[in-house]
Simulated scan of single mutants.
Amino acid sequence: MKRRWIIAGTAAWALAIAGLAYFSYRYDSPTARDQTTIAEALPTLDAALGSVYSALDPASSVAVLSGYTRTDQSCRVTSAREGTRFERVLMVYVRSSDEGPTLDRIKAALPASYKASVSHSVTTHTLSADAGNFVLLRGGMVAPGQLRFTADTGCRVQDAPVEEATPQSQNANRAPVQAVLDTLAKPASEWRTHRLTCPAGGALWTVEAKAATPDDAKARTTVPPSAVILDSEKLFAYRAGAAGVTLRKDADSLIITSTAGC
């Protein structure tokens, strides 16, 4: 009889442990990055960069959103499991000397849970924040008037293809880009669209076209001086209504972008 009670008690204990493990698996939050996947991290990347964009002064900045990029660094989730990592970048162009104030503005607007910090020096300005879900958000000046914000998944298991949200319309935000192409009398050899869902709803779009010419002089002359945000030899950024537009020279081609949303 005593032996039966021991066996029954052991079986009940095992069932209880199994039940708790299942409940924890279904409902508890992950306690380490290696318990999550790349797919689970991507919405956090988007939310972080969407929060950065939403904090910008739309009258004095121009942004360009990239797609998801797999980093070249190899990594292992554990000693027995290989992992990978992805990042997404938001470039922000501001007037010279506005780099530091822009980072301060973003820090103040980010959620308190991010625990964002900003560091200033004579030559550089940086921002660091924890976007949650083990995603790190970094920002900093990479050149006068140029700020680069990167959201990084960290090393995780990839269990599904990494794809951007499907654009609802391939023509969204194309008008400012097409206007530049028309001015230059050049067709686009390639079109790309990058999109993310903003934390407060809506979407952020960057439409990009490549033209087979590095000469953008004619297009620059059509922009009112008051609309210009950044003007250098290889980069020209300006406001065109609700959109921010950039012209970037790349060897024998010209990259034109238009960004708006959130």
Results as ranks from 00 to 15, higher is better:
Arg248Asp: 11
Lys234Leu: 11
Asp250His: 07
Glu208Trp: 01
Lys234Thr: 15
Asn171Tyr: 15
Glu82Lys: 06
Asp252Phe: 04
Thr44Asp: 00
Ala160His: 12
Gly145Pro: 04
Val122Phe: 04
Lys2Asp: 11
Ser51Asn: 13
Thr153Leu: 04
Thr213Ala: 02
Ala211Tyr: 00
Pro111Cys: 14
Gly83Ser: 06
Thr166Val: 15
Ala179Thr: 11
Val52Thr: 13
Asp104Ala: 12
Leu147Phe: 03
Asp72Leu: 13
Lys234Ala: 13
Leu184Asn: 08
Thr153Ile: 04
Met91Phe: 13
Val92Asp: 01
Arg3Cys: 02
His125Val: 15
Thr69Leu: 08
Glu163Met: 14
Phe236Glu: 04
Phe23Met: 10
Ala243Met: 00
Ala18Gln: 00
Ser232Gly: 14
Thr150Glu: 13
Gly244Ile: 08
Val135Cys: 09
Ala18His: 00
Ala47Asn: 10
Gly83Tyr: 07
Val135Pro: 03
Gly83Met: 08
Arg33Ser: 14
Ser60Phe: 03
Val52Phe: 11
Ala131Ser: 11
Ser74Thr: 15
Asp34Cys: 05
Gln170Trp: 14
Lys115Arg: 14
Leu147Thr: 05
Ala240Thr: 05
Glu163Lys: 15
Ala109Leu: 10
Asp250Ile: 09
Tyr27Phe: 14
Gly154Thr: 13
Asp104Lys: 13
Thr166Gly: 04
Ala260Ser: 02
Val52Pro: 10
Leu137Val: 07
Thr71Gly: 12
Arg3Lys: 12
Asn171Trp: 14
Thr166Leu: 12
Ala41Gln: 01
Leu137Tyr: 02
Thr31Ala: 00
Tyr25Gly: 00
Arg26Asn: 11
Ala116Phe: 08
Thr193Tyr: 04
Asp159Lys: 03
Ala200Trp: 05
Ser232Trp: 06
Glu164Gln: 15
Ala131Thr: 11
Gln158Leu: 11
Ser226Gln: 12
Leu181Phe: 10
Asp72Glu: 13
Ala227Asn: 05
Asp231Met: 02
Thr37Ser: 10
Ser113Glu: 13
Ala80Thr: 14
Gly244Ser: 05
Thr37Asn: 02
Arg4Pro: 00
Ile7Ala: 14
Phe134Ala: 03
Pro58Arg: 06
Thr183His: 04
Thr123Ile: 12
Leu204Met: 06
Pro58Ser: 06
Gly202Ser: 08
Gly19Arg: 07
Pro58Glu: 06
Ala108Leu: 10
Tyr22Ile: 13
Val92His: 02
Ala175Pro: 08
Trp13Glu: 00
Pro224Cys: 03
Pro176Tyr: 04
Asp72Thr: 14
Ala39Val: 09
Lys107Asn: 15
Leu184Gly: 11
Ala16Asn: 05
Ala211Lys: 02
Ser24Asn: 15
Val223Lys: 01
Thr213Gly: 01
Asp72Gln: 13
Leu136Tyr: 03
Gly9Asp: 06
Leu65Gln: 01
Asp34Ala: 11
Arg3Met: 10
